[in-house]
Design a protein around this nucleic acid. Structure first.
Lengths: 194, 194
DNA sequence: CACCTTTCTTGATCCAGGTCAAGTTCCTTT
DNA sequence: AAAGGAACTTGACCTGGATCAAGAAAGGTG
């Protein structure tokens, strides 16, 4: 199992002994998804946190007009889950799908609880990454309330320069809160401006 | 110091011994704000998490056109901070102001770190409340991307029925992502519809 | 490599919600 | 209780971004 990336990721925030690392890794399971395969569907109960080793996930909801809205992407080194459903263990509204062939490590809700019992340091780890995630959702919300679509697009390009060429434009569009048509128009306008 | 409310709040998630409670309380300081007084201003470094005992706080940013956007309210029993600034200890963009006369308990960043050292259970407490907060910001973001202003207003009324009559309408407006003028129009339309 | 589906683009038109301006009502402060 | 300033309302007009439609490009699959 290729656990270097996830252990490296954790080591940024907490120090683990060799034994603790081994124990943590023993709680993980590998999963691979083909392009367009789903990890979780709308209405299901989310049982896993997923960590992306390679590939990209997209988490999105479908509104009552059938339009998709991307909540988040999880490229290499990022976590993904339907947090609402994972915490409450009630059916959620998120769909999680692989944009391309994707390799994951899964930590089940049950194993996560065991981990907290056995290695309480992980409370700290997940507290810190949840705090960071919270900050970025707050920022994104404020951006949606106060910036124009063009500014939000420019911010996205600056923040995730590598993703721009990987992700389908339609997904970038709904992530920043516009229709695919409007994103297309913005891009051609930005090109002409040169 | 009136610490019943905060201890009761904590007891929902973790169990503390009498000693731990006493220690925790010793790390808090009281603060009271008059109506329209600020706890934190745009550009400052956030040094405290604030817990509201009575009254209400509003956290808002000011955009480059001078318009305010409410990120969150903290009525009785809620926490408030500029999480970005608190975590990074860099200057933030949030303003925190008392809407009415407000009594707070403050936990300084420094004391919070001490608390984590001495009573690691608090890692768990703050992990859990941060997770809950994350879920509600994710939901609010998706609501902003997929619902009409009218639906968002109705949701707000359902979710916070007690706050509707306490909070200035202009603040509810920017919280749900519309101008005060437009909220006013929506309300008169909803009344007529009866 | 050709087919087929999905994604992307572009044009024409539309509308939810914003902007600006001018009252009016409410509330704080004295 | 009077004054003054916020907060709220309402009207007229405007616009960023959505919608609908139809074709063009791209890219995965047999």
């Amino acid at each position: 199992m290729s656990t270097d990336l996830i252990l490296h990721n954790i080591a940024k925030f907490i120090n683990l002994t060799g034994e603790e690392k081994t124990f943590f890794v023993s709680l993980l399971q590998e999963k691979s998804l083909k392009r367009k395969e789903f990890l979780l569907e709308d209405g299901e109960i989310c049982k896993y946190s997923a960590f992306t080793i390679s590939g990209v996930l997209r988490g999105f909801t479908v509104d009552h007009n059938g339009f998709e809205h991307v909540l988040s992407f999880a490229p290499e080194g990022w976590w993904m889950a339907d947090m609402y459903s994972l915490i409450s263990q009630k059916p959620g509204t998120l769909n999680i799908e692989a944009i391309e062939k994707t390799e994951l490590l899964l930590l089940s809700k049950a194993n996560q609880e065991i981990l907290y019992q056995k290695v309480p340091k992980f409370e700290r780890f997940f507290r810190i990454i949840t705090e960071n995630s919270l900050v970025s959702y707050q920022q994104r919300l404020m951006d949606n309330l106060s910036l124009t679509a063009e500014d939000r697009y420019n911010n996205f390009c600056k923040r995730y320069p590598t993703l721009i060429n990987t992700l389908p434009k339609k997904d970038i569009a709904t992530y920043i809160g516009v229709t695919p048509e409007f994103l297309s128009r913005m891009q051609s306008k930005l090109l002409k401006r040169k």
